Simulated assay, not measured.
Amino acid sequence: MDIQPYTSTETLAVGRPWLMSMLGIEANQSVTLDLSKFDENLHWTEASKYQPDRILKSGIPLGKLTASGLYAPYNAVSNEVETLTVTGAPTGGTFTITFSGQTTAAIAYNATAAAVQSALEGLSNVNPGDITVTGNAGGPWTLTFGGQYLGENVTQVTTTESFTGGTSPDITIATTTAGGAAASADGSDVFAGFLFTEVAFHAGATKAAAPLMVHGQIDVAKLPVAFDPSDVPAGSNSQFVYKV
């Protein structure tokens, strides 16, 4: 693995703002993706009335699954996942979330996942992409850490509630996946390269052909998912220069 500083601000190609240079495009390899391993919230956008296909984002780091030979999202270490669950059926009120010494503004008891994520991104220590929140309005909400907290065993969040109604309403917090643990040795833990182009696929499809980029110059901050080059194991055959 060859990782070196690169400071150019050049960007190339529609849909590939992470690509700093076409250097190495000739090294792209044709691979087959295991679509069951990709997540809608992180890796692809849903179809619409005017666009019948789902679109897998370009720039996703990939690894090769040992058992099938198919490619899936690169996963060197686990990312922290925490779940917040409202109990006691409150009918009103608010709560706050504290993460690493910083506390959000008040959040409605029945907030959407987007509202919870927005509140967290209002903290001085959380940038967009650092914490992705999913779930239904009113919870449970699942907090998945990435960005600057990619692969880290972060301190569990805490909450302070000012709920009304219900029976002893509260929020329970569980760490469902601790960050920093070694990923399963299934091949996805070995970095292979980046998905070079967007890939369209129909709902229900299980596989898709795609070009794998194994040589080039990359702006890590503009990749569609959080990626830390320092997590890449030694011995990778891919060669990239990363903008820092």
Rank of each mutant, 00 (worst) to 15 (best):
Gly193Trp: 00
Pro169Tyr: 08
Thr160Gly: 06
Val126His: 02
Gly129Ile: 05
Glu198Asp: 09
Ile173Lys: 11
Asn136Trp: 11
Asp186Phe: 01
Gly187Val: 06
Ala205Gly: 13
Gly129Trp: 05
Phe201Glu: 00
Gln156Cys: 09
Val220Asp: 06
Thr164Leu: 10
Asp219Gln: 13
Ala178Phe: 13
Leu143Met: 09
Val154Ser: 00
Val214Gln: 14
Asp189Ser: 05
Gly147Gln: 09
Gly151Gln: 07
Ile173Phe: 02
Asp186Leu: 07
Ile171Ser: 09
Gly204Tyr: 02
Gly180Ile: 05
Ala205Leu: 12
Ala185Asn: 13
Val214Tyr: 06
Thr142Gly: 05
Pro169Gly: 04
Ile131Thr: 09
Ala205Tyr: 11
Thr134Val: 06
Glu152Val: 14
Ile131Ser: 03
Gly138Asn: 12
Gly146Cys: 07
His202Ile: 06
Glu198Ala: 09
Asp186Lys: 07
Ser162Val: 06
Gly204Arg: 03
Ala209Tyr: 15
Thr197Lys: 01
Thr158Lys: 07
Ala200Glu: 10
Ile218Gln: 14
Met213Phe: 08
Gly147Met: 03
Gln148Phe: 10
Gly193Gln: 00
Thr158Met: 05
Thr142His: 03
Ile171His: 01
Ala208Val: 01
Asn136Ser: 12
Asp186Thr: 01
Gly187Gln: 02
Gly165Asn: 12
Thr134Phe: 00
Phe163Gln: 10
Ile171Asp: 09
Pro128Gln: 03
Asp189Met: 01
Pro140Thr: 02
Tyr149Met: 08
Thr142Gln: 04
Thr177Leu: 10
Phe145Arg: 12
Asp170Ile: 00
Thr155Gln: 10
Gln148Asn: 14
Val220Tyr: 11
Gly166Val: 04
Pro211Gly: 02
Gly139Asp: 05
Pro211Asp: 00
Gly204Ile: 06
Val220Trp: 10
Gly135Gln: 02
Phe191Thr: 00
Glu161Pro: 15
Ser162Thr: 12
Val190Tyr: 11
Asn127Thr: 07
Val133Trp: 03
Thr172His: 05
Ala183Pro: 01
Gly147Lys: 04
Asn127Asp: 13
Phe145His: 12
Gly193Cys: 02
Gly135Leu: 01
Leu195Phe: 05
Gly179His: 07
Gly179Cys: 10
Glu161Leu: 14
Gly193Asp: 00
Asp219Phe: 11
Ile171Phe: 02
Thr132Phe: 03
Thr176Lys: 06
Phe163Asn: 07
Gly151His: 02
Thr176Phe: 01
Ala185Gln: 14
Thr132Ala: 06
Glu152Ser: 14
Gly146Asp: 06
Ala209Cys: 10
Pro128Tyr: 03
